[in-house]
């Protein structure tokens, strides 16, 4: 009995590992291809490179004259970091208000907030662009950053509202008896208990901002302001010469921050999602 259970477990594991490798194959292919000379990438089907070269990395790093990919990483980090912090602070405050405070028309505002999730981004695109244009913010990072300071990511507000509702009200009440006001309750009770939700928010904000392409291509015009997703596309011209080797090399570098963050905080993501009632 024990033996057969063990065998069964092992078989299941082998199967899962096999499927995992199968799913990873495109990524592995990209990793190996990034070390191949450009002309062999598509003509040599196998994984293992016949010739190994770092040329793609050098070529990719020096993407255009006077500009290296380092600049794009710096810009992307800057934007992502500010978005993460802004979302953490403002979304948690908004969520606290919705979860714990009493104010007029609360249900209506909550519905409005949820509606912003459902509104397709394309609808607001042109008006938004016009507003940022008249503010003189085009080709700066501001259109990407400033909205986050006003808790515009309704998804995270919703996520945190759900989490905060799960925190027993008894804690608030005993804090009130001890003389805490709403701000102190928020700071001393709610936030420390909501760390999993906060971490989930940070990770998703980071990954989504890091990978975002469309709003960045829209608002950033000159290469000095470019971010990693825009930098990657500088290599690609669907109608002419594309430097695939360089794209692969830089894609791998750009995967590293997200992958690292995901692996470090993996545990919290699951915790954060399962305890917010947002069960998939």
């Amino acid at each position: 009995m024990g033996m057969s259970m063990k065998w069964q477990k092992m078989l299941v594991h082998i199967f899962i590992i096999g499927v995992g490798i199968f799913m990873l194959y495109p990524v592995l292919w990209m990793v190996f291809s990034s070390f191949k000379p450009e002309r062999l990438i598509f003509s040599e089907p196998g994984l293992w490179p016949r010739e190994v070269t770092l040329e793609n990395y050098f070529k990719g790093w020096h993407v255009v004259r006077d500009t290296t990919f380092g600049l794009f990483f710096k810009n992307s980090f800057m934007i992502s970091a500010v978005c993460v912090i802004a979302n953490l602070v403002t979304c948690s405050m908004a969520a606290y208000a919705f979860a714990r405070m009493k104010f007029p028309l609360k249900k209506l505002w909550f519905a409005c907030m949820l509606m912003t999730i459902m509104l397709p981004a394309h609808v607001t695109l042109v008006p938004q662009y016009s507003i940022f244009h008249s503010l003189g913010w085009i080709d700066t990072k501001l259109p990407l950053i400033v909205p986050k300071i006003f808790a515009t990511d309704a998804f995270f507000i919703f996520l945190m509202v759900q989490f905060f509702r799960g925190i027993p009200r008894d804690l608030d009440e005993s804090a009130t008896i001890d003389g805490c006001g709403p701000i102190k309750i928020y700071m001393k009770i709610i936030l420390p208990l909501a760390v999993p939700a906060l971490i989930t928010t940070s990770i998703f904000t980071f990954i989504w901002t890091w990978d975002d392409f469309f709003s960045q291509v829209l608002y950033l015009n000159t290469v000095q302001n470019f971010t990693v997703p825009l930098g990657l596309r500088l290599f690609l011209d669907s109608q002419g010469d594309s430097s695939w080797g360089a794209v692969f090399a830089m894609s791998i570098l750009s995967l590293m921050p997200t992958a690292t963050i995901f692996f470090i905080f993996q545990k919290y993501i699951v915790e954060g999602i399962t305890t917010t009632g947002l069960k998939g």
């Binding site: 291509v217 011209d237 109608q239």
Partner: peptide, 8 residues
């Protein structure tokens, strides 16, 4: 100069 890839 405002250049980009073809996407977008």
């Amino acid at each position: 100069a405002e250049y980009s890839g073809f996407d977008g």
